[in-house]
Computed example of a mutant assay.
Amino acid sequence: MEITINQQQHQFEDLCSVTQMLAIVLSGEAKGIAVAVNQTIITKSTWQTHLLKDGDQVMLIKATQGG
């Protein structure tokens, strides 16, 4: 299946949850990350159960410090 993540195409063999996708794409801890799928924010409490589908558009937003 093909998913677009931050405007880049990614191929996945099987259905995967947001948590699984983050582990693959970020190769590490997803701390300070917000996730939107098809322009809808996905709360962190549902990352493990929210399954991504072929053609989904995912946006990852990383919190930064500054001022």
Score class of each variant (00 low, 15 high):
1 M>A: 15
2 E>W: 14
2 E>F: 13
2 E>L: 12
3 I>C: 08
3 I>Y: 07
3 I>G: 09
4 T>G: 05
5 I>V: 13
5 I>G: 05
6 N>C: 03
6 N>W: 01
7 Q>D: 13
7 Q>Y: 12
7 Q>H: 12
8 Q>K: 15
9 Q>P: 12
10 H>C: 10
11 Q>D: 13
11 Q>C: 12
11 Q>R: 11
12 F>C: 04
12 F>I: 11
12 F>G: 07
12 F>W: 09
14 D>A: 11
14 D>S: 15
15 L>P: 07
15 L>R: 13
15 L>I: 13
16 C>F: 08
16 C>Y: 05
16 C>G: 08
17 S>L: 15
17 S>C: 15
18 V>I: 15
18 V>R: 00
20 Q>I: 05
21 M>Q: 07
21 M>W: 13
21 M>V: 13
22 L>N: 07
22 L>Y: 05
24 I>M: 10
25 V>G: 01
25 V>H: 10
27 S>E: 10
28 G>D: 03
28 G>R: 08
28 G>I: 08
29 E>T: 14
30 A>D: 02
30 A>I: 00
30 A>H: 06
31 K>I: 02
31 K>M: 09
32 G>W: 04
32 G>I: 11
32 G>L: 09
33 I>P: 00
33 I>G: 00
34 A>Q: 00
34 A>Y: 00
35 V>Q: 04
36 A>M: 02
36 A>K: 11
37 V>Y: 02
37 V>N: 10
38 N>F: 03
38 N>W: 11
38 N>M: 11
38 N>A: 11
39 Q>W: 01
39 Q>L: 05
41 I>R: 08
42 I>C: 00
42 I>V: 14
43 T>P: 02
44 K>G: 00
44 K>C: 03
45 S>I: 15
46 T>P: 00
47 W>G: 00
47 W>S: 00
48 Q>Y: 06
48 Q>L: 06
49 T>P: 02
51 L>P: 02
52 L>A: 05
53 K>D: 14
53 K>M: 13
54 D>M: 10
55 G>W: 06
56 D>R: 03
56 D>M: 07
57 Q>E: 08
59 M>F: 08
60 L>R: 02
61 I>A: 08
61 I>P: 01
62 K>V: 04
62 K>S: 08
63 A>M: 11
63 A>Q: 09
64 T>I: 15
65 Q>S: 04
65 Q>V: 03
65 Q>M: 15
66 G>R: 09
67 G>P: 01
67 G>Y: 05
